[in-house]
Simulated assay, not measured.
Amino acid sequence: MNYKKIIGLVIVLCSIASCKTNPFTGKKTLALVSNSQILPMAFQQYDQFLSQNKVIKGTSQAQMINNVGQKIAKASERWLNANGYQGYLKDYRWEYTLVQDDAVNAWCMPGGKIVFYTGIMPIAKDETGVATIMGHEVAHALANHGQQRMSAGQLQQVAGVATSVAIQNKSAQTQQIIGTAFGLGTQLGVMLPFSRSHETEADRIGLQLMAIAGYDPDEAANLWRRMKANSGGQAPPEFLSTHPSSDTRIRNLTAWAPAAKAEARKFGVTRFK
């Protein structure tokens, strides 16, 4: 395939990339990989992860995670149905699992498979803290962030091929310089900001969901104050990170909390845990 054909492919891919709408923002999103492709793979990886790790069952913490997860998922369904997205969750298979691991972490697979590590529970502190984390993870699933990251990765690969072909007649030194610049440029200028935007979006969506589920959105900023204290200030600079800084998140969540409460009132929720 010659250079012009590769560039043409990039253009075609870009033209069809924005073919799905995020219901919470109304924005077009990358969707080069369909749910029919990504969900079976995600569910398989989730099952494999559980088979290789110690799943905690029957404890008060495990039960709390499951209960909070169900409430947040129900809140998301209420919001989606009320805003014209009936059936949006038909392919989702919600599951909320606590795993023995000291890492301060939680994550969500596409399609609604959510894992909390035991290491994050002391920082979550209580049910409202768990709801803050859960809302964020559910939001990742609802906004199809996994699908978007895979799609962006595919576009990055195609662009990398196009760049390699375009400079194939250059000297080896020039090729190395341009290749390195391309890698750093796309990582720092595209992929990392793309990831941070997803985290910010999930924070905002999750704040609304936890409020609709009856949890106080004012407490979300306190969770991140605890996260910041736990990190001891060891986080990398924001521009080198896949996530916004704790200070940025605290400011954002504090500013967004009133709007989250207002959204919850639309669903008759006026008192919060």
Rank of each mutant, 00 (worst) to 15 (best):
R196K: 03
Y46H: 15
Q63E: 14
G183M: 06
N81V: 12
S231I: 08
P23R: 05
Q147M: 12
R226C: 04
A141N: 04
S60E: 15
G129D: 06
G189F: 10
P122W: 04
T174Q: 13
K20N: 12
A131Y: 02
A260R: 07
N222A: 13
N144E: 12
W224I: 08
Q70Y: 00
S246W: 08
I177Y: 02
P217S: 10
K27T: 11
L9G: 04
E263H: 03
P110Y: 09
I11Q: 00
D203H: 12
S241K: 03
A235M: 14
A82R: 02
A152P: 01
K54P: 05
I56R: 05
P122R: 06
N67Y: 08
E199W: 06
A124G: 12
I177C: 05
V12M: 01
N22I: 15
N22M: 07
P236A: 10
K273H: 09
A220D: 03
A259F: 11
N230G: 07
F43T: 15
K20W: 10
P122K: 04
L89H: 00
V269T: 09
I6L: 14
L240N: 06
T248Q: 04
A73W: 03
V158Y: 00
H243P: 08
A139K: 02
T59I: 06
I250Q: 09
I6R: 06
W79G: 03
Q156F: 07
I250A: 08
L142C: 10
Q208R: 11
G26P: 11
L209A: 10
G268L: 05
T29N: 13
S36D: 15
Y3K: 10
A106G: 05
H140K: 06
A42Y: 02
D218F: 11
Y85E: 12
G160M: 11
A42S: 15
R249S: 01
Q175C: 05
M210W: 04
K125W: 00
G160H: 07
K261F: 04
S231F: 03
E199I: 12
I177N: 06
C19E: 03
A143N: 07
R78C: 06
S34V: 12
C108Q: 05
Y85H: 13
F49A: 02
S231R: 08
T174Y: 08
I177S: 01
K4F: 11
M1K: 04
T163I: 12
R93D: 12
R93K: 15
P110W: 03
V190N: 01
P236M: 07
C108M: 13
